[in-house]
Amino acid sequence: MTTTGGSDESPSVALRTEALEQLLTERGLIDPNVMDAIITRYETSVGPLNGAEVVARAWTDPDYRRRLLADGTAAIKELGFSGPQGEHIVVVENTPTLHNVVVCTLCSCYPWPVLGLPPSWYKDPAYRARVVREPRTVLAEMGLTLDDDVQIVVRDSTSEVRWLVLPERPSGTEHLTEAELVPLITRDAMVGVARVAAP
C-alpha cells in the first residue's frame, strides 16, 4: 500500500464503505453474515423476474388477474413474493388508451419484492424531477412514444404504498404459455416506461 501521508483529498466512497464496515464489525454492532444475506437477497434472489411471473400469471389466468387488480399485495403473495418495500402493493393496468408510469419524486421508493432494487434511471434526478411535469416528453426520451389519445397517469410513490404496472399483453402472443411469456416481460414495462414487445 502506498503511503500518501495527510492528503487533502477526501477518501473515496469505496474506502469510506470499507472503513464503516470495519468500525461496526470490530465492535460487534453488525453481523457480517447478516450483511452478506442482505446483499445476496437483492443481488440474486429478488429481482424483476418475480414481477414478470406475476404479470405472466395475470395474462394467462383471468381469475388471478382480477385478484391482482383488487388486492395486489395478497395476489403477489400467492406466488411467494413479499417483504420490505412491498407491504402494500397496488397494481394498475395499462391499456391501449391508458398508460400508468411510476416514480418516487422524494427518494426512489420501488416495489422491491417484485422488481428488486431500482435501476439507475429510476434513481436519476432527471427522471424523478421531470416525469411528474412532462411525462410524455420523458417517455419519448426513453424510447416510448405514446399517441396523443393515450391518457397518462403518473404514480408518485410518496407514501409506503408501492405501485406495479400490469403491462398490456402484446398481440401475437396468444399461443404462448405462461412460462414462455415470462422472459418477454421487462422491468421497464412494469414501471411503465416501456411496452412489452412480442418476440
Binding site: L106, W121, A126, Y127, R128, A129, E141, M142, A194
Partner: peptide, 14 residues
C-alpha cells in the same frame, strides 16, 4: 425533486 428543472435528459434504460 418533483417538477424541479435543470437536470438534463433522462438516461435510457439498460
Amino acid at each position: 425533486m418533483g417538477g424541479t428543472q435543470g437536470w438534463g435528459r433522462v438516461h435510457p434504460p439498460d
